[in-house]
């Protein structure tokens, strides 16, 4: 009768362990998103602040830290996705034949479509990295520099988001992300063992707040460019007198 699984075998080999991994990686990704959103909003302070911020990210620790951060993020993301697939396959296998009459009493739409919103977020992340980090759609993006010789991230973002379809697709992606998190955020604390009644209710409300805040915060850049709150600036020419 003695159970054999302990330690790491539990984390990756049991359903509860797999959900713990989902919760921890999900929380790590949420913390990253919060800092990422904060950084993005610096675009409202103009090209100088934004480009300096972008440079500071890439040059931290002699340019090495960004790779450490990317490695960590990739590990979190890949583990989250791998566990999502593993759980999804298991959950499907657990009910090979469904009901002729399907009904839902309590489960939210967001909770039932985590795999769908997750996959859409995955697709968005791939496109987003191709768009800004690798410059797949417009290789020029990465060659733009400002007067200080820094990569002109401001111009890149403003140029990209001045295409309404690009800006709108980012907005749509953020709505999908919000759906993932409106269930995900409250769920992660339950997975990690929060059985406190009031705390659970408070976190359910906080979940909606966090999802909306993140989506809203991320949308401020594309929407700001579209509505002209963030203006293009000619920074590729050296300033007169310099």
């Amino acid at each position: 009768m003695a159970a054999t699984k302990r330690g790491l075998a539990v984390l990756f080999g049991s359903t509860i362990g797999a959900k713990t991994v989902m919760a921890v990686t999900g929380l790590a990704l949420i913390l990253f998103l919060l800092t990422h959103m904060g950084g993005n909003l610096l675009i409202y302070f103009g090209p100088d602040v934004f480009n300096a911020y972008a440079k500071s990210l890439k040059s931290a620790g002699g340019g090495g830290l960004v790779w450490v951060a990317r490695g960590g993020l990739l590990a979190m993301f890949a583990t989250h996705v791998a566990m999502a697939f593993k759980l999804q396959l298991r959950n499907r296998a657990a009910r090979p034949l469904g009901y002729a009459y399907e009904a839902t009493v309590e489960a939210s739409w967001a909770s039932r479509y985590m795999i769908l919103t997750g996959l859409l977020v995955l697709a968005f992340v791939v496109l987003h990295l191709a768009h800004y980090t690798v410059g797949v759609f417009n290789p020029d993006y990465l060659t733009w520099h400002d007067a200080e010789g820094r990569h002109d991230a401001y111009r890149m973002v403003v140029t990209a988001f001045s295409h309404p379809l690009v800006a709108l697709s980012y907005v749509v992606a953020m709505v999908v992300l919000a759906l993932h998190l409106v269930h995900g955020f409250q769920s992660l604390f339950r997975s990690l063992g929060n059985s406190h009644e009031q705390a659970r209710e408070a976190l359910s409300k906080a979940s909606l707040g966090l999802a909306l805040a993140l989506a809203f915060g991320f949308c401020l850049a594309p929407v700001g460019v579209l509505l002209g709150w963030i203006q293009p600036v000619e920074v590729t020419q050296p300033a007169p007198g310099k």
Binding site: M1, A2, A3, T4, K5, R6, S14, T15, I16, A18, K19, L87, R90, N91, A93, A94, R95, E106, A107, S108, S111, R112, M114, H183, Q186, S187, R190, S191
Partner: peptide, 19 residues
């Protein structure tokens, strides 16, 4: 430990906190 391991061995799904 024993009950959860048996639960998994029986092929039940995992919890998504649907309610």
């Amino acid at each position: 430990l024993g009950m959860v391991e048996q639960m998994d061995d029986e092929g039940f799904g995992a919890c998504t906190n649907y309610g």
